[in-house]
Design a protein around this nucleic acid. Structure first.
Length: 411
DNA sequence: CGAGATTCATGTGAAGTATACCTTTAGGCTTAA
DNA sequence: AAGCCTAAAGGTATACTTCACATGAATCTCGTA
């Protein structure tokens, strides 16, 4: 039924092929955490961000800043770039300037008010327990750390929309008001959001103070993406490794996905990695296609694997139900009740504690938020009201997930 | 035939509970003078 | 007597449960044309 994805080579052979010939010269330049010296097509934004936060060099508090644009449009990159430059400059001038960066999306790290604050304190060299303290005590601690001398603190909150979606915008209010508590230091908040409509969902007070300045990052078009890729590919690969059209194809694919540069780079890198694994010497077009599939499935597999046990059980229920239904060629929709029933059975089989339907309902909603499934609350009229759950994934991927979950839950 | 009432299955909000972890405090023990 | 360790007390955040009410269109009911 399920095909083996990769031939099993002798370990020795695998190592050999890696040592012998690498098509990569400097792979780092294609990785998403790489900060290039030069960011094409973002000159204007860099200048804007820089000029807005520049007053910090004179120990004046810059305006709060809000950056928004779809994923892979360079928001984080630009911010990091300006951040590094500014820190360098501040260092040279002997100005006391702190710019902690927190990604608010990371589950279990910075997805509640408490944890964001804890992470921030941690970045500033303080220590706080993971739990046990009242949140306002964390604020106190934060102030203690920051307010030791005249200095500017620029807090960068990435993926801020995720945090607000989860815990509301109150913490932003607290944050922007922090300045009134400070005597020596001053705080500026830089918010980064992937959600274009995010600002409108905020409380007006928060909105006006957070977006004293705002900058929109428009998607890259295919040509701009090509530019970016070419520049990076030149450093990443050895000469004459990339077939004609490959870069164009990566760009086109990514441009279709709202101009996501990260996506384009990933495509190219993964394609390269696949080529290398096959001990080939050139990246040809079909490797781009394979890379595309791999990226999509990898992302999902990781998301599923890192899910807590109860979540995995719930997800497995969803998957198995949908597979079953698909086999009977019925409509590919299921409802909360169905999921819960199967979930209960699975719990019994695995001797796991059974959570209430209330909770499972929330978990399903969370899957939807994470984009693992497609759930919509509908009313079936006389037959009640429920979530209609769908999953649009290729069948072989669903099978793989199924196996992985069965395995990790030892079913 | 159509407007309004009914109904179902679950969504959703609020409040309560269990658990894990934190700090503080006080008592008891050790140690060194 | 001072210093250190430990256990108990008191507190919080988080994940989950319990309770109670909200939803909203398919279906039913019943008055009217």
């Amino acid at each position: 039924m399920v095909k083996k994805k990769e031939d099993i080579k002798e370990v020795d052979e695998i190592f050999d092929s890696f040592v012998k010939q690498s098509i990569f010269q400097n792979k780092i330049t294609l990785q998403s955490n790489y900060n290039p010296e030069d960011i094409p097509h973002r000159k204007r934004q860099i200048a804007q961000v820089a000029s807005i936060i520049a007053p910090s060099l004179r120990l004046e508090r810059p305006s709060n800043l809000f950056l928004y644009g779809l994923t892979g449009t360079g928001k984080t990159l630009v911010t990091q770039y300006v951040r590094n430059q500014l820190l360098k400059k501040a260092d040279k001038l002997g100005v006391s300037l702190l710019m902690p960066y927190v990604n608010c999306k990371l589950r279990k790290v910075a997805d509640t008010e408490y944890r964001i604050l804890a992470e921030l304190i941690h970045k500033l060299g303080g220590k706080v327990p993971a739990t046990g303290l009242p949140t306002d005590q964390l604020y106190k601690k934060f102030i203690d750390i920051v307010d030791v001398q005249k200095q500017i603190l620029i807090v960068i909150l990435d993926e801020i929309d995720q945090a607000v979606k989860r815990i509301g915008d109150e913490f932003l209010y607290n944050f922007t008001r922090l300045n009134t508590e400070l005597t020596k230091a001053q705080i500026t908040v830089v918010g980064i959001s992937n959600d274009l409509k995010f600002l409108d969902t905020l409380d007006p007070r928060v909105k006006s103070s957070l977006s004293e300045e705002e900058i929109l990052f428009a998607p890259y078009n295919a040509l701009q993406l090509q530019d970016i890729l070419k520049k990076r590919a030149k450093e990443a690969f050895k000469e004459k490794v990339v077939d004609g059209g490959v870069i164009e194809k990566c760009s086109a694919l990514a441009a279709r996905e709202h101009g996501d540069a990260r996506r384009a780079l990933d495509l190219l890198r993964i394609a390269g990695e696949l080529v290398e694994r096959d001990s080939k010497e050139k990246i040809s077009l079909d490797y781009v296609d394979r890379a595309k599939d791999k990226i999509e499935s990898d992302k999902l597999l990781i998301a599923v694997e890192t899910q807590p046990k109860q979540f995995q059980l719930a997800f497995l229920s969803v998957i198995q139900l949908l597979r079953r239904i698909k086999r009977e060629k019925k409509e590919e929709k299921i409802f909360t009740g169905d999921v819960y029933n199967l979930y209960r059975d699975l719990c019994k089989k695995t001797r796991t504690e059974i959570l209430t339907q209330r909770r499972i309902s929330d978990i399903i909603a969370e899957f939807d938020m994470q984009g693992l499934i497609n759930a919509k609350v509908i009313s079936k009229g006389r037959y009640g009201r429920t979530r209609e759950i769908r999953l649009d994934l290729p069948e072989n991927l669903v099978d793989r997930i199924n196996l992985i979950l069965m395995d990790s839950l030892s079913l």
